[in-house]
């Protein structure tokens, strides 16, 4: 089994969850309803916890401590997709991103339950139950607001159109796709993308939203190899601000 291929997979998943968790946490105190404030804050805590568990697996494979990995790298050393680093805008934007990302994330973990690397398969079995609540939350609101008023439908549609190319960037192919498949670690980004499209289509069919034409989209790739938008570094600066004051502090 190649550690490089496995590490690349773990890093991109962990970085997605850390960065997306941070964006979710930015809704704390700002949600449009108290319930949504709590929901995004809870999901943030889940995501960051899951990222920590993945960094812990990386640590066991010889990488540095989870806190060091999370708080001391620069943007070009992060492997998250660009979808998760985009700044929050209005609620519709975050809701659509949550729907697009969590649908893929839940499917990814589900596929990893069969992973030949046992610690990851075990973690996947655990995370799966938690993610049910995230996808339930996303689907409930997309269905409700996607069939509600002209304004809600219009807002979701615009966010969906804007985010579609970034969402496709989630499935940027790894240089190790064949190896991951051969080693039975992961079925690959292509298989995940196909399942994700089906799941997205199934939910959107229950709304008045129009599916973006995937074929004409240019996926926003680069995130997996450290090429990010200008929005990631400021996020990392803010996230690591306290840690960097005294990296050796005991909490």
């Amino acid at each position: 089994m190649s550690n490089l291929a496995l590490k690349e997979l773990l890093y991109k998943m962990a970085d997605d969850l850390l960065v997306f968790g941070h964006r979710n946490s930015e809704w704390t105190g700002f949600g449009p309803l108290l319930e949504e404030d709590i929901a995004f804050s809870s999901m943030a805590q889940d995501k960051i916890g899951q990222s920590q568990a993945l960094y812990q697996l990386l640590h066991q494979l010889g990488e540095q401590e989870p806190d060091t990995v999370a708080f001391t790298r620069n943007a070009n050393q992060f492997h998250n997709c660009t979808l998760v680093e985009l700044p929050n805008r209005e609620y519709d934007f975050s809701l659509v991103r949550h729907f697009l990302f969590d649908t893929a994330d839940a499917l990814r973990w589900q596929m990893l339950m069969q992973c030949s690397y046992t610690p990851l398969a075990q973690l996947a079995a655990k995370v799966r139950g938690e993610l049910r609540y995230h996808t339930l939350h996303a689907n409930t609101w997309i269905k409700q607001l996607g069939s509600a008023t002209e304004e809600s439908i219009g807002r979701l549609q615009q966010s969906l159109n804007e985010l579609a190319p970034y969402a496709l960037g989630m499935f940027e192919r790894s240089p190790y796709e064949d190896q991951l498949m051969a080693d039975k670690i992961f079925e690959g980004e292509k298989a995940l993308e196909a399942r994700w499209q089906q799941a997205i289509e199934k939910t959107l069919a229950q709304t008045q939203l129009t599916l973006p034409d995937w074929k004409i989209q240019t996926p926003h790739v680069g995130g997996r190899v450290g090429q990010h938008t200008e929005h990631l570094q400021p996020l990392l600066d803010e996230m690591s601000e306290v840690f960097r004051i005294d990296p050796g502090a005991e909490w």
Binding site: E35, I38, A39, S41, S42, M43, Q45, D46, G49, E130, Y133, L136, H137
Partner: peptide, 13 residues
């Protein structure tokens, strides 16, 4: 069910 998320990760409201 008011909210599948609550005051701690393990609770719903």
């Amino acid at each position: 069910l008011k909210n599948p998320f609550g005051p701690t990760l393990c609770r719903a409201i």
